[in-house]
Amino acid sequence: MRAAGAVLWRTGPDGGDGIEVAVVHRPRYDDWSLPKGKLDPGETVPAAAAREVAEETGFSCVLGPRLSRCHYQVQTGSGAVADKAVTYFSARARDGVFQPNEEVDTLRWLAPPAARALLDYAGEIEALDELSRLGTDLTTVLLVRHAKAGKREHWRGDDDLRPLTPAGNQQADALRTLLPLFGPDRVHSAPRLRCVQTVQPIADDMDVSVTHEPLLSEEGYWSDPDAGLARLRALAADAGTPVVSSQGKVIPHLVRTLAEHDGVPLDDVPSKKGSVWLLSFRRPAIEPVSTDGIPRLVAASYLPPPAAAATSDTE
């Protein structure tokens, strides 16, 4: 059984550096928790997190880094015991008004220490602690591997012009729904048709152009990996949430190198077509200031291709 939730936060009422987080009371369980709930059939984990926030608090939100994942056992309606996994994201509150409902009768906006003291579950305290560790003033780069475009050996034209297959277009459509949950504000891509096509629908929806990034193509990156890494850090140096579309022979090395250099532990670095890495950076102006003035990776998590877009089409 899979579920998702979020630490929903907003700037404190004094307008300073402090934040408040939302804690909800559920009368059915008489507990205080973070907004969370089970995935609907075919729903992605991020979409479920944003939906549950809206349903339980009345607020829309912009998702940020994945904070934690906890596992525990629950009793089902039939009396059987099932494993449950809940993934928590950081979520910045946007517009909304809380209205009591059947699931939640009270919402409290509290400073993190007060929220921590009120929460009833260790897994949710862990998510809140991770938000406090990371902070909220981050740039999250949405690093996308291009969607399915068939096999290189089956394409007779210029490989730069190899387009998405029908399955790839389905994946691009799924990303068009998934990525806006994280509030992207600009779109970049390796100058390959399949890379650009993967993120073009998102750029169209945002009414922005796709900026080409030659250093993040296979040829450009491997001719000078340090320059490619520096370019990604440069994209993270500004506030906001850039989308960056790249290739399978670039992303694993780039992510692994960033993580090793900046001390972010990663067990594995998968990169399936249509997948996304959430790479969250702390900018130099934010404490602790980096000695060389460049943004530092503080969190990295992998989003597999949306299941609704999975097909048997060739890679």
Rank of each mutant, 00 (worst) to 15 (best):
A50V: 07
D120P: 02
P65E: 01
G228Q: 10
V187M: 04
V264L: 04
A115S: 09
K148P: 00
T257F: 06
T291C: 02
H25C: 12
P201D: 11
Q197S: 03
E103I: 06
G5V: 01
E103C: 00
P295R: 10
P180K: 12
D30H: 13
F89S: 01
R162E: 04
R152C: 00
V269D: 02
H146E: 03
D262M: 10
D158H: 13
D14M: 05
L131A: 04
D105F: 11
A308I: 12
M206F: 06
L161P: 01
A174G: 06
Y221Q: 04
G293I: 09
D226V: 10
V141E: 03
V141T: 08
P163D: 06
S245W: 03
T311A: 07
A54H: 15
G77Y: 10
D267A: 15
P163E: 07
K38T: 13
S189I: 01
D129G: 09
H25V: 14
D129F: 04
V45T: 15
P225Y: 08
W32L: 05
D40C: 01
S78P: 00
Q171N: 07
E315R: 13
R108W: 05
E153S: 13
D185E: 06
L181P: 11
L235C: 04
W9T: 03
G42Q: 05
L119I: 10
K249E: 13
R133S: 06
G15H: 12
L279Q: 03
P288I: 05
K36H: 10
D207E: 15
L8Q: 05
L178Q: 14
D226C: 01
L179D: 00
F182H: 02
G228I: 08
P46K: 06
T139H: 03
G58T: 12
E126M: 08
H146I: 02
P184Y: 02
Q200M: 04
I202R: 02
